[in-house]
Amino acid sequence: MAAANRGDAEAYARLLHALAPLIRHIVGRDRQFIGGNEVEDVVQDVLLSLHAVRATYDPRRPFMPWLLAIVRRRVVDAGRRRMRRTGREVPLDEGAVTFPAAGANLAGEEFRQVEALRVAIGRLPPRQRGAVELLKLREMSLREAAAATGSSVGALKVATNRAMAALRLLMKKT
């Protein structure tokens, strides 16, 4: 380092190439704090910082404490940067992507099924349609539905069974 500060580029290159794996090892111990993908960035950050403050190295004093102080500081800085960044981010689920291939459009297919079901329900006789709407769509109990329509529980069960059979047929046709 003393030679590098005197302008010896070769000695500096040898030193930095020798230090890089050591710095990577030290930084790597804190990969959970700084993020696994950031290790090489922090190593380069350390090298840039070391280069920027190389004038603070005193050849009369040991080199390693000087280096480790810089490494520790840059690791802390990187960790804080990451905390700030992740603190502002909201993880989102993967968004639906539509591709030209028909097999990739499952979400759209489901949507089309819902539309078909809605049309099929609309084609049911009024009594059966009412039973489906109250029991299946609004999720009322049989007693609540009976009270709302004024018909008996048995009649509602019959209407629902018939409606479901009719819907199965209608959906097969589509």
Binding site: A55, T56, Y57
Partner: peptide, 23 residues
């Protein structure tokens, strides 16, 4: 950083100028 570390070291050592140690 998109640069490789050895590449960065080459850049740091290229045109290296002597520095006056801090007092």
């Amino acid at each position: 950083m998109s640069m490789d570390t050895p590449e960065l070291i080459d850049m740091l050592t290229r045109d290296l100028r002597p520095v006056r140690p801090t007092r």
